[in-house]
Amino acid sequence: MYFKVSKVLTGLTLLLLYFIPYSVNAVQEKSPSSGLNSVLKLTLSPVLTAQPTSCITLHQGRECFTNITIHWQSIDVDDYCLFQEKKKLRCWNNSRSNIASITFESSENITFYLMKRDSDTVLAETTITVGWVHKATPRKRRWRLF
């Protein structure tokens, strides 16, 4: 009886010892240090942001005007270019981050892209959306105050 009990305990112990390393690995995979690696990876990829992110016009379809500030940042020092859709706006040589002030003038959303010079790969992008107060109406608008 004693033998049988000791055999079962030994088996359970071995089983625990077998699974413990995997449990530790599993905990390690979910550890903060692993998440930090992901964050670092994200941080390392180039970032392109714009302020403000939207432009509001009075009527749908009308050109919207605003001054936007675009900020980009990368881990690598290199030659980077900023594009408005397919149009090259500006390039920077041997740079890692920079700021550009742009006069936004459009009736539609416009996306800005960050690319390396002489490369077709989009590193980062951001979109300025165009909104409106009054939607388009088939009736011509007339205004008269009093």
């Binding site: 509001i56 016009t57 009075l58 909104g131 409106w132 107060v133 205004w143 008269r144 105050l145 009093f146």
Partner: peptide
């Protein structure tokens, strides 16, 4: 006879600002 000037500017997608003056 009336003469007026009226101006409107968007504030957000739901709000707009208006100001005007009419001389009669």
């Amino acid at each position: 006879l009336q003469a007026e000037i009226f101006a409107q500017h968007p504030i957000s997608e739901n709000w707009s600002f208006s100001a005007g003056i009419t001389q009669n």
